[in-house]
Amino acid sequence: MLIVLAVFAVLIISDFLRFIRNKEPAKVFVIYTCLMATSLSISLLLAAGRRPSSPAQWIEAVFKMIGVLE
């Protein structure tokens, strides 16, 4: 858990410093934060041992609903 946080902290801080230095537009921050927040929350859940249902399962479910897969 701590390790996950540490790695993410390093990544986010280093990237943010770079963004600020290069004066990137706000949307960069927004998209970046969205992606990182998702990654962080999922990895925290994974680290806690609670694996949320994954996209692979959603896709499989969708295909089953449509009837492509039986």
Binding site: A6, V7, V10, L11, S14, R18, N22
Partner: peptide, 15 residues
């Protein structure tokens, strides 16, 4: 950027 790239990757790898 070039410089920061190397340093960042090296740092990450090291951690």
């Amino acid at each position: 950027k070039k410089r920061s790239g190397i340093v960042r990757i090296a740092f990450l790898l090291m951690i």
